[in-house]
Design a binder for these strands. Structure first.
Length: 580
RNA sequence: GCACCCAUAGCUCAGCUGGAUAGAGCGUUGCCCUCCGAAGGCAAAGGUCAGAGGUUCGAAUCCUCUUGGGUGCGCCA
């Protein structure tokens, strides 16, 4: 149920009728017609730009169209008034029952209120985290994990068919480094002192891996040449790291649908097939790249390489797919992996990358564009840095990982719910400040607390109503006559509820889950504001002496609670019933 | 040198993918607080939306240039 869509449909119907009557030319494109809440509530309940959008193609004055449209709209029972304003805005006022119906719909649909269908029939793949399996997840990964997971939930709520996927970068040189690092811990487990050379991973988290290797292999590799143990140690430690990463994700309540392995692409011919597909389109050639202007690497020398003509698909320079030693560059398996996603039938691909991979965006888009013949869009969301603070001071910690703060550290300090919400309070491409004290603060300027407090207040009045003898089941509340919810303050709160389905669509279309957090903060503020009004105006309180009156007020409170918990569900945050 | 991201109130940031007089929190100032759930409430002040052009009925939003920050730039992922 989306009241704005309903009214927009009404507007489009009226425009169609006007065309049929000859008031408007036939065949006008109404795609740009919007129905939105006006910024200033004094302008009414909803405003449409229809007259202004259509004025030029219709060859008419905006006000003339608006007048005629107003007359048509006014005949609908939901419309209480329609008036032309400004350059040609049409401001609509709806009858109270139209708004009260939103409360009933929220109660009847519960957690599904606001569910949209804009993604119906669209298969989307959200690839996120994809951290190298060389250590525990740190804060940077955490933000990517939360954004990806929440975006996936949001798209699911908007009707998309969503797959959450993790691409394991287990095919490159860094897993050899991991194996060598584990070998040193393996030696350590045998009582030898490890030699953590420059470039190896120094973190303590490999100590148990070394012990496990000792338990599995005894001392047989202690003096063996690297070639004998490297493949075994690589596989063993990669699996150990992935187990740890899965645990980290579980601690954040992130569950992947699929883990795809880079290594598994080798030897299957998939990389060759992907490159051959590009070659068949004339996009692979042997050539020499120009050195970057202004900043030539010191060891630069011209070299002939196998190149992908990504410039044909919007990139700035062509990109190598093979190294000079004949091996694939990291780009090649990535191409194959994305080709695989295209072949699996996805209609939309989304990658969540760290901001330091920004330079990778164009080539990846070029590859997907080429491989899907432009059919499958690839959206890449770059995740900016998280700056940690404690008491306003920059925060550093080195517990188990050596030099960085891990996901585990954060979750243990503030909990998964707080971590997730805070990570979603900013746009993904803006830096985020995360203060361990502020996020736990009980105050107005802590959005997590503020939203949870609103939900707890709703739960509180529900308990009171139930104790007083009101049937507080959603079914009972949804069946009430809500026409007494007619105070301007109550209608304002209901308008906010009505905006929820709209916000879902906007956020889903923009692939921006942080908008949900913003909306929740707003509706929480509205609930608290309404609550405070009750202090001066007892008629507005949710708890009333008259049970029938209380039931209708409770219906409104519960509807707000339903929307808050639906929004929190998208963010992956558990709503609380009381604040303790 | 080139590419991408960013620039909005004193501070931290929203801004509905082009709409009407650009919003919120903190901070500041002034009142109120025997009130469903304390951890406050109401109100005021505060802006050349980095700058300059352009697109159009209309621009913080789109395009171009400039300034100032961040990130990246062949055989590392």
């Amino acid at each position: 149920m989306n009241l704005f869509n309903d009214i927009r449909a009404l507007v489009v119907d009226c425009l169609g009728a006007m065309a049929a009557e000859g008031t408007l030319p036939a065949g006008l494109d109404t795609a740009n017609v919007t129905v939105e809440p006006p910024r200033d509530a004094a302008h009414g309940d909803m405003a449409t730009n229809a007259a202004m959008v259509l004025a030029k193609p219709a060859g008419m004055k905006p006000r003339d169209i608006a007048e005629a449209l107003a007359a048509k709209l006014a005949t609908d029972p939901r419309v209480a008034g329609a008036e032309v304003a400004g350059p040609g805005f049409l401001n609509l006022r709806l009858v109270p029952t139209a708004w009260q119906g939103v409360v009933g719909a929220a109660l009847a649909q519960g957690k599904d209120f606001g569910r949209a269908s804009i993604g119906a029939g669209v298969k989307v793949n959200v690839e996120f985290v994809s951290a190298n399996p060389t250590g525990p997840m740190h804060v940077g990964h955490t933000r990517g994990a939360v954004v990806g997971d929440a975006l996936a939930s949001l798209l699911d709520f908007a009707g998309y068919d969503v797959t959450r996927e993790y691409y394991i970068n287990d095919g490159g040189a860094q897993v050899d480094v991991l194996a060598r690092s584990a070998f040193e811990r393996y030696r350590e487990a045998h009582g030898l002192s490890p030699e953590i050379a420059e470039g190896l991973y120094p973190g303590d988290y490999l100590i148990p891996v070394g012990e496990a290797l000792k338990a599995k292999y005894g001392d047989r590799f202690l003096n063996a040449p690297e070639a004998e143990w490297l493949p075994l140690f690589r596989e063993f430690s990669t699996e150990a790291m992935m187990a740890m990463i899965r645990d980290d994700l579980a601690a954040l309540n992130v569950t992947m649908d699929l883990y795809s392995s880079e290594k598994a692409l080798y030897g299957t011919g998939k990389i060759e097939a992907a490159i051959d597909t590009l070659r068949s389109k004339g996009l692979i050639y042997e050539g020499v790249l120009e050195p970057p202007k202004g900043k030539t690497p010191e060891d630069w020398e011209p070299r002939e390489q196998t190149l992908f003509k990504s410039t044909e698909h919007g990139d700035d320079v062509d990109r190598p797919v093979k190294k000079s030693d004949g091996g694939w560059t990291y780009f090649a398996p990535d191409i194959a992996y994305h080709y695989d996603k295209v072949q699996r039938g996805f209609d939309l691909l989304i990658d969540i990358f760290g901001a330091d991979h920004g330079g990778y965006v164009k080539r990846m888009k070029a590859a997907v564009s080429a491989l899907s013949e432009g059919r499958v869009p690839l959206d890449i969301k770059l995740i900016q840095l998280v700056k940690l603070f404690k008491n306003g001071e920059p925060f550093k910690m080195s517990k188990r990982a050596g030099t960085f703060v891990t996901l585990r550290d954060v979750v243990e300090m503030v909990g998964a719910d707080v971590t997730r919400f805070v990570m979603l309070t900013r746009k993904n491409d803006a830096p985020l400040d995360f203060d361990f004290d502020k996020v736990l603060e009980q105050s107005r300027d802590n959005p997590v607390w503020y939203v949870q407090y609103a939900h707890a207040r709703v739960a509180s009045v529900l308990r009171k109503a139930q104790a007083a003898g009101v049937d507080t089941s959603d079914a009972a509340l949804a069946g009430l006559d809500l026409s007494s919810l007619s105070d301007p303050a109550e209608l304002a709160l209901i308008r906010k509820l009505a905006d929820w389905p709209r916000q879902v669509e906007i956020a889903a279309r923009a692939h921006e889950p942080h908008r949900v957090a913003g909306y929740l903060t707003e509706i929480a503020a509205d609930l608290h504001g309404h609550w405070n009004k009750g202090n001066d105006t007892p008629e507005l309180r949710f708890v009333q002496d008259d049970l029938a009156t209380m039931a209708t007020k409770i219906a409104l409170a519960r509807a707000v609670g339903v929307v808050i918990s639906a929004g929190l569900a998208i963010l992956g945050v558990t709503p609380v019933e009381e604040m303790r």
